[in-house]
Amino acid sequence: MGRYARAFGLLCLVGTAQAHDIKLSTWNLDWLTVRPAGDPAIPPDVGRRTDQDFARLAAYARRLNADVVAFQEVDGPAVARRVFPTDAYRLFLTDDPVSQRVGLAVRGDIAVTVNPELTALNVTGPQASHPLRGGLDMTLRGGSATLRVLVVHLKTGCWDQPLTQKAYSCPTLRQQFAVLDDWVLERQDEGEAFAILGDFNRRLTLADPMMQALEADAPMTLTTAGHASPCWGGEYFIDHILLGNAARQWLVPDSLRVMLYRDAKEEDRARLSDHCPVSVTLRLPDDPAPAGG
């Protein structure tokens, strides 16, 4: 599976960050909802969190201590606030008519511009019985540098099958990667530093054909490349952070981290999440670097 990304759990690990260091994280919160049992928007086998479960997730969010958290599978802003309180973060979510929405929690000292949602990622169309998620597209400013951020949660099922595979949701995922490719080409044309992060539902590696298709148009850094995740005893990464243009030079070496649920047992997985937060640190310059990758 490759060498494990470094796990962490202490706030002091981020205490030495400089003025324009930004800790960027992605965290799938696994059907985070307060809808009652029997609600048609939620599968019947999805468990419901108790107040204690929400308190534990909020405690883990404090321990994560990220400046920017891309989150997935969150059922609206009221639910998100129970994990990311408004005294610490501003919250932004897509307008998707689904219970598994994506969003971004941003520290108050980071300037934010909200760009049009990337609705094209819902390749099944808005009238589908089970529509897919759009992408949250935002621009962050730290110091004098800007970072364009796209938060995604792609179609599940096509973990590592070849591009020719016609089952396992692979045709749908290929369509979504084509949408990502168009978005990346726009960032290239505009010379913007960018990051794509979230749950790709794909075990991306540098040799993966979907990753290679993206890189054919724009060199990118797959921050999880060469690593396996220690989450819940060890697994391949499907939660990724991709960096392009000047953001590749901003990556602090060896800053990839996976936050484990310390003292949690296997039976706690459904009460917390089946995903662990993944993060990297970017060191934004006082003066923006050239955009070329």
Rank of each mutant, 00 (worst) to 15 (best):
L11I: 09
L11R: 15
T16Y: 09
I22P: 02
S25L: 02
T26L: 02
P44T: 12
V46Y: 02
R48P: 05
D53H: 01
R62G: 11
R63I: 08
L64F: 00
D67G: 07
A70N: 12
A70S: 10
Q72E: 14
G76V: 02
T86Y: 01
D96F: 02
D96G: 02
L104A: 11
D109E: 12
A111T: 14
T113W: 11
N122S: 08
N122G: 09
H130W: 08
H130A: 14
D137Y: 13
V151N: 11
H153T: 03
L154M: 05
L154D: 01
L154Y: 01
D160N: 14
L163M: 10
K166Q: 14
R174T: 07
R174W: 00
Q176C: 00
L180W: 10
D181L: 03
R187I: 00
D189N: 14
A195D: 03
I196E: 02
M210C: 04
M211P: 00
L214W: 10
A216Q: 14
A216E: 13
T223P: 10
H227F: 13
P230N: 14
W232H: 11
G234Y: 09
D239R: 03
I241R: 05
L243C: 07
N245M: 05
W250S: 04
V252F: 01
V252W: 01
R257I: 01
A264H: 12
R269Q: 15
P285T: 08
P288V: 14
